[in-house]
Simulated scan of single mutants.
Amino acid sequence: MDKLSFLNSIAVIAVFVSILLAFFLFTVKTENKLANRLFAFFFILTAVDLSGFFVYEFIEGQLNLEVFRWTTCLLGMPLYYLFVLAVCYSDFRLKWKHLLHAIPFLAVNLIFVPRFYLVGDIEKIQFFKLHDQMPEMLIFRFVVEFQYVYYIVGVFLILKKYKDIYLENYANTSFSTYIWLFQITTVFLVAHTIVVLKNLLRYTDFNESFIWANIVVGSVALLITCWFILKALNHPELFRGINSKLKLTKNILPEVEIKAESGTEQNDLIKTQIITLKQYMSEKEPFLDPSLTIQELANQINMPVRDLSILINHHIDQHFFDFVNEYRIQKAMQILKDTSKKDLTVLEILYEVGFNSKSSFNTSFKKYTNLTPTAYRNS
C-alpha cells in the first residue's frame, strides 16, 4: 500500500467514525438536546473536512463543490463555541443573532465569486493549479486562522467564567463539565497547531513531506474522534449547566447599596450573619447533600441569595465550593478518628459526608490536612 492509499484509508475511517459519533449525539436520550445537536453538526462538518483526503475521486469536474467544501471549515469553530455555551449554561437558547457567526463563511465565499464561481471551466482549472498562490486563498487561510484564535480564546474565557460562577454557587464536587470541556478545547488547540505546521510545509523546502504530514493529521483526527466516542458512550449525560443569569460576587458588590447608618453597625451585622451561618452549618449539616447550591442554602437560612453570596465569597473570603467542602472534610475527619466507625471504608465515608467523587475527596482532604484520608486515619 502506497502513502496515498494509506492516507485515504485513514481518512475514510475517520469520516465514518465522525458520522457515527454525530448519529449517536442526535439519537442519545439527554436533557440537553441543543448541545448534543450542535456537537453533532460540528462532527458532520469535521467529516466533510476530512473527506478532502479522498473525495476528489468522486467529484471530478465539480470544482465549485470542492471550493465550497473548503469554506465549510469556517462554520466549525462557531458551532463549537455555541456548543460550549449550550453545555455551560442550562438556559442557553439559539437566537437569530447567532447567525452572525456565519458571516466569515459567507464573506469568503463572496470573495471566490468573481474569479472562480462565475468563470469558465478552463479558468477554474487554472485557479486550482495555482491556488496556493492565489490572493483569494491567502485571504481565506488568514480568515481561518484569525477566526480560530478568536473562538478558541472565547471558549477559554467562557470556561473561566463558568468555573468561577460554579465555585461561588455550587458545592457538587463532580466538576466533570469544566474538566471535560477544557480537555476538548486543549485537544482541539493542539490538533489545529499540527494542521498549521502541516500547511506551512507547502511553502518550505520540505514540501515533499506534505503527504506524510497529512497522514499524521488524519491519524490524529481519527484518534481524537475515537476518544470522543469513548467519552460519549461512558458519559451519555456528561454535563450539568449553570444559570447564565448568575453573577460573580465582584460584579454584585458595586450594585449593592449599604443602608446601615454606620460602618460599625454594618460590621456587627456581618459578624452576626457569619456566626448564624456557621452555627447552622454545624448543627443542621446541609453540606451532606452532594448537590447543595447557594440558592438552596439561602432558602434554608432565609437569606437573599445575593447577600449570602457576598457573605461567603467576599466577607468570609472563600468560594462557596470551598466553604462547603471544608465542613465535609471536618465531618470526614471526625468519622476517621471515631474508633467505633473504623470498619467504614474511605469510599463509604466520602459518600456519607457529601462527596460523590473519590478523586475530589482525596484532593480536598489533602489540601485541608496535608494528609491522605488513609494516612490521617492511621496517624
Rank of each mutant, 00 (worst) to 15 (best):
G61F: 07
V48R: 01
G61V: 01
T46H: 00
L74Y: 09
A102T: 10
K97I: 13
Q62M: 14
T71W: 08
R93S: 13
L45T: 04
A47I: 02
Y89S: 06
P114N: 11
I103Y: 08
V108N: 00
V113D: 10
F41S: 06
Y89A: 12
V113L: 13
A107N: 06
W96V: 15
M77K: 14
L106T: 05
A107T: 01
I111W: 14
T72S: 04
F112E: 03
E66Y: 12
L75A: 14
V67G: 10
N64V: 06
V119Y: 09
Y56H: 15
L50G: 02
L118F: 12
F58T: 09
P104K: 04
I44P: 00
I59P: 02
F53R: 01
F92Q: 12
H101N: 09
E123Q: 13
C88V: 14
D49Y: 06
L106A: 14
V113S: 05
F116D: 00
L75M: 14
F53P: 05
T71C: 15
A35G: 12
L74W: 08
E66S: 12
V67M: 04
F112G: 04
P114Y: 01
V87N: 00
R115N: 11
A102W: 03
I103E: 11
A35T: 15
Y89V: 09
L110T: 10
G52A: 10
L38T: 01
N109M: 08
A47T: 00
V87D: 10
D91S: 08
G52Y: 04
L110W: 08
A35D: 11
W70P: 03
R93D: 05
Y81V: 10
L85T: 06
S90H: 05
A35Y: 07
L65M: 14
H101S: 04
L110V: 13
F54M: 00
Q62D: 11
D91W: 02
Y81N: 08
C73P: 02
I59Y: 07
I44L: 09
S51V: 03
V84Y: 08
G52S: 04
D91C: 04
G76E: 15
R115K: 15
R115P: 05
A86V: 14
I103W: 07
A107P: 05
I122K: 13
V87C: 15
Y56M: 15
F54V: 01
L100P: 03
L99K: 02
R37S: 05
F112I: 10
R115D: 14
R93W: 00
L110N: 11
Q62C: 07
I44S: 00
F92I: 12
L74H: 05
N36M: 01
F83T: 10
A107V: 11
Q62L: 08
F112A: 13
H98T: 03
G61K: 02
L94R: 10
F83R: 01
L118K: 09
V55I: 15
W96Y: 09
T72I: 09
F39A: 11
L45F: 11
P78F: 13
E57Q: 11
G52Q: 09
H101M: 13
N109I: 08
N109Y: 05
R115E: 14
L75E: 09
W70N: 06
